[in-house]
Amino acid sequence: MFDTSCKNLLVRGVNWIGDGVMTLPALKALRKALPGTKISLLVKPWVSPVFEKNPDIDEIIPYGDTHKGLIGKTRLAWVLHKKNFCSAILLQNAFDAAFVTFLAGIKNRIGYNRDGRGFLLTTSVPVPKNKDSAHQIYYYLNLLDQIGIHAAYTAPYLYLGIDERLSARTALNGLKRPVLGINPGATYGSAKRWFPDRFAEIVDWFISDTGGSAVIFGSASETSIADEICKKVIPEFRAPDSLLSLAGRTSLRELVSFIAECDVFVTNDSGPLHLAYAVRTPLAAIFGSTDPSLTGPPDGGDGSVIIQPDLPCSPCFERTCKITTYNACMR
């Protein structure tokens, strides 16, 4: 059982944006159960913006490039040691998470018994038998339940400042309303990406049907996908008040703010999908190689529409299609 007298808790967060959003209910449950405890979150810098302004977290500790290798991990462990944490809860699954907290001398180290790290944990929790059939949010909540912390489901929510909302609203002022957000990328692999010409068709239909506009989002590595969509949109809808590409032009916090200002969002199964439901933007989520019951909009996804193929090979969880050259599940 977790020692509730602990007043200085470290949580090792996860490494991906979408996974980060799915840990938010667990962090809220921790705050509710431990109102007088300082909760510090150790996460990679590219994920930390997900947790900014979150009242359930007191401190964000970056786990950056300077902490690579044994020397870097030792340096990080010393930083953690000096903070005198009494317990560490490891939401991240890797051996590394247990190793660093062990090196830091944190007395109580709690996490799932997996990835060969059980001997480094003081409380080793069995991996739930339903981990491949229950939504990922419940994987994190179950860890807390198993150590005696009541962890009821709450809808993930991202906190934005009024200045962030107003900045995004101002940037979109020149676009016709309503605004459709498009996220055509997926870092995991091509098997999760719908085709650019299909996204272009959605843009054409939306602008024609509503008189509104579309914004295309993406990382710096996905600008070519965004450019291809823009080229396939019919010429009359490429006007500055109808079509805007922000691919490669936003920080993560800016992306969250822009998605919050969209009236509807169409996305592959990727990090921005989770950002959208966590800011309550209605969305259509396209699944092919992955399973929406595991990583889709949670608990029925109020305001969400899930699109998935009825094919025997889906979900396959592959990064690239192993059967065809054209991703049959995404056609």
Rank of each mutant, 00 (worst) to 15 (best):
I106A: 02
G111A: 06
N130V: 11
R109W: 11
G116N: 07
N142K: 14
L143M: 10
H135I: 02
Y138E: 12
I106T: 05
K107S: 12
Q136M: 11
G148T: 10
P128D: 04
R109S: 05
N108M: 14
Y139H: 13
R117T: 03
S133W: 04
T122S: 11
V127A: 04
Y139P: 09
R114A: 08
G148V: 09
D145L: 06
I147F: 07
R117H: 03
L103E: 09
T122A: 09
S124G: 02
L144E: 01
F119C: 07
K131C: 10
G111V: 13
I110E: 06
N130L: 11
N113S: 15
Y140Q: 06
V125L: 10
V127C: 08
I137P: 00
I106F: 00
D145A: 13
V127M: 14
A134F: 13
T123Y: 01
D115N: 12
R117L: 06
T123N: 05
R114E: 11
K131T: 12
L141R: 03
L103H: 04
H135Y: 05
L121T: 06
D115V: 05
V127T: 11
L143K: 10
L121W: 01
S133K: 13
Y138G: 01
L141I: 12
S124A: 15
N113L: 14
G148S: 11
L143G: 02
Y138C: 02
R114V: 14
L144G: 02
Y140V: 07
L103A: 05
T123V: 06
G118K: 10
V100A: 05
V127F: 12
G105D: 02
D145E: 14
S133V: 08
F119E: 02
K131H: 12
G105F: 02
Y112S: 10
D115L: 02
Y138R: 10
I106E: 02
L143V: 08
L121D: 00
N130W: 13
R114H: 04
D145R: 15
T122Q: 03
Q146P: 03
N113V: 10
R117W: 01
D132Y: 10
S124D: 01
Q136K: 11
Y140H: 12
K107N: 08
F102K: 15
A104L: 10
N108W: 13
F102A: 14
G116I: 07
Y140N: 12
K131F: 15
T101A: 07
Q146F: 06
D115M: 07
D132T: 09
L120W: 03
I137V: 15
G105C: 04
T123C: 00
N108K: 15
D132S: 11
F102P: 08
H135E: 01
I137G: 01
T123F: 01
Y140A: 10
I147T: 09
F102L: 13
F102T: 13
I147H: 10
G105R: 05
D145G: 12
L121C: 04
L144D: 00
L143F: 06
L103D: 07
L141G: 01
V127D: 14
Q136P: 03
R114K: 13
V127K: 14
R114L: 14
F119M: 12
H135P: 00
Q146E: 15
V100Y: 07
Q136F: 09
